[in-house]
């Protein structure tokens, strides 16, 4: 009896959490012209149509680029920072930590607005560059946090051992530290990628002619029409995220790092 109640609660919660996602999949598979559930017959026409919409294609490429290169840049900045914060006695370490983590505290929309107003406009920076900077900053806290927690689990005497065996500090890092935090770095990359790709508020103000991230483009498209193509695209993107996370989970037990 108690078991039954448990499963009922779990079932209802999961329906509430996952149900909308299922509805989206089917709403996108509608054969009709309008958004509806249950759909007016099933077809893949909207799923296929998504690929023919030029602005979606452009914004997909932009979002992909931002997610990949923004996250890489964040890791490039974040790994050394996480390493230094973990292994060195730094003056003002707490301040550095707070500064690096600040992008997580400030709501994205404010960051986007601030960058637009005080960087893009006065310094004549292109929107794409600003977006790249903003997404890098956005992912930076995740990169530092996930890499830090991997480093925490790696005893520092291993590096000392490497040094005593003849390594320079840099060799100790590349030969001993990096191979052992590979999982954490990969997890940080995936987490950063998904966060950046799905990000809306930061990019809200940072768009220009022909420069829009995919989620923003979808929001704009929805203002014109409610046809099932956005549902289809949403479902496709969700599948993409899930596939990435699923593979990551299989490869390295990703959920440990979230």
């Amino acid at each position: 009896m108690k078991n039954l109640t448990s499963w009922a609660i779990i079932g209802l919660t999961l329906i509430f959490l996952i149900g909308p996602f299922i509805i989206i999949i089917f709403a996108g598979a509608s054969a009709g012209e309008s958004l509806a559930f249950p759909p007016d017959g099933l077809s893949l026409r909207w799923y296929l149509k998504v690929f023919t919409i030029e602005s979606f294609r452009q914004s997909f490429v932009l979002s992909m680029g931002l997610a990949i290169f923004g996250t890489l840049a964040a890791l490039l900045l974040g790994i050394p920072a996480a390493y230094a914060l973990n292994r060195y006695e730094l003056p003002g370490a707490e301040t550095i930590r707070t500064v690096v983590a600040s992008p997580i505290i400030v709501p994205g929309i404010i960051v986007g607005l601030a960058l637009l107003r005080y960087m893009v406009i006065p310094l004549d920076v292109t929107v794409t560059v600003a977006l790249f900077m903003a997404h890098t900053a956005l992912v930076l806290p995740y990169a530092v946090r996930v890499v830090s927690s991997s480093l925490n689990n790696l005893r520092s005497d291993m590096e000392e051992a490497a040094v005593l065996l003849g390594c320079t500090r840099l060799q100790a890092f590349t030969k001993v530290v990096l191979p052992n935090i590979r999982g954490g770095v990969l997890a940080a990359f995936i987490l950063g990628f998904v966060t950046s790709f799905n990000q809306v508020p930061v990019s809200l103000f940072l768009s220009g002619p022909g420069v829009r991230t995919l989620p923003i483009d979808m929001l704009a498209y929805m203002e014109i029409t409610y046809d099932p193509s956005v549902a289809a695209l949403s479902a496709l993107l969700a599948f993409m995220s899930l596939a990435i996370v699923f593979i990551a989970e299989r490869l390295l037990g990703f959920s440990r790092y979230v």
Partner: peptide
């Protein structure tokens, strides 16, 4: 330290797990 030619066996052994 890396040019001294001294060996150290750590309390935790500090073996390279990978």
């Amino acid at each position: 330290a890396n040019k001294r030619g001294i060996g150290l066996v750590f309390q935790s052994y500090a073996l390279f797990p990978h």
